[in-house]
């Protein structure tokens, strides 16, 4: 019966979804094993707290594929748990405390969310595994802008109005502007947008005068000569050929550097053996071509850290964030 083929398709597709969900639920508690010999049993789940296709999603999928390549027999499914600017995904991850079969591609929202919104977690509730790299921001202006350095920008803001676009009040680009204000006495008038893409459009359309964006978001516009970068808010200059000529803010007398990190965390309360397993696997991953490719195509600075070093980094970063938000 032809007319039923449509329904059949719908039902089959729906059943597949249900079965996938059930499969997930079954795998949950099967993991375990203490001591040195930990090895995940069954499939591991990479929980991505943002929508498919975004930066977090790509980092999650790249790390998952990379880990599978360096650990024989490992299977990682990626699952998007979307909502609440990431809060839903992190909360779900919190509910997996003690289960080493879950991983989450983390970034600075891990710190920023608890500072700004009432959520049931902070970074201490999870097990930091690896920091893959740092994503700093560049101060970018339209090509027609009279400014050529961040010092120009700061001076202009002291004598007149400077309209800066930010990707949300809790966005990290806003943190960079605040840190610059605190360091130099500059003053920026902020217009809130919701994503880097919106900021790009607003810059290209001359609706805002400056924005602070990740290199990966603007490098093509820089190459095309539509935008120009004034300075990089990073400790050291970028080594990528298309970015190496951009001076750091520090070189221009503004002592501000703030990165969004990209990394990997496991749920809190997992065994030492499990933690060691994931850290060892991550060390192998970072040496792999997949990791290098991910870092290069997103223009990250490859500053990898593992385990305790990553935890220490999170603490320091959290303090900077708190300071920037006046707490």
């Amino acid at each position: 019966m032809k007319r039923n083929s449509l329904l059949l398709t719908a039902v089959v597709a729906a059943s597949v979804l249900i079965l996938t969900a059930c499969g997930e639920a079954k795998g949950q508690k099967s993991a375990g094993g203490d001591g040195e010999t930990f090895k995940p049993k069954g499939n591991v789940t990479m929980v991505v707290p943002y929508g498919a296709g975004g930066g977090s999603d790509m980092s999650g999928r790249s790390i998952a594929a990379g880990l599978e390549a360096v650990v024989p027999g490992l299977r990682i499914n990626t699952e998007n748990r979307v909502g609440g600017s990431g809060a839903v995904g992190y909360s779900y991850f919190l509910s997996k405390t003690g289960d080493p079969n879950y991983l989450l591609p983390s970034e600075t929202a891990l710190l920023a969310l608890p500072l700004n919104t009432k959520v049931g977690f902070d970074y201490t509730r999870f097990t930091p595994i690896m920091k893959v790299g740092d994503d700093f921001t560049l101060a970018v202006v339209p090509a027609s802008s009279p400014w050529t350095t961040c010092a120009d920008l700061v001076n202009a803001s002291k004598s007149g109005r400077v309209v800066a676009g930010i990707s949300g009040v809790t966005g990290l680009d806003n943190v960079v502007f605040t840190l610059t204000e605190q360091a130099t006495g500059a003053k920026f008038d902020r217009v809130p947008f919701e994503s880097g893409d919106e900021l790009l459009a607003a810059l290209l359309g001359n609706q805002i005068q400056v924005a602070s964006l990740n290199p990966g978001e603007v490098v093509e516009q820089l190459k095309a000569g539509k935008l120009k970068a004034l300075c990089a808010f990073s400790e050291k200059r970028y080594e990528y050929p298309e970015l190496k000529d951009i001076p750091t803010a520090k070189e221009q007398g503004i002592d501000v550097a703030f990165a969004q990190f990209r990394g990997l965390i496991a749920p809190g309360g997992i065994s030492d053996g499990a933690r060691k397993f994931w850290i060892d696997a991550s060390r192998k991953f970072i040496e792999s071509d997949k990791a290098r490719q991910y870092i290069a195509s997103n223009y990250l600075q490859p500053n990898a850290l593992f385990g305790d070093d990553f935890t220490a980094y999170l603490k320091e970063n959290n303090d900077t964030l708190k300071k920037a938000q006046g707490e």
Binding site: V82, G83, G84, S85, A87, V88, S91, N116, T117, K118, V119, G120, G168, V169, T170, P192, E194
Partner: peptide, 19 residues
């Protein structure tokens, strides 16, 4: 979450309603 200030409105502390 409101776009201007990042304040959460009518969410009753539910993370599901933040977006």
């Amino acid at each position: 979450l409101d776009a201007g200030t990042g304040t959460s409105r009518f969410t009753f502390d539910s993370v599901n309603l933040l977006s």
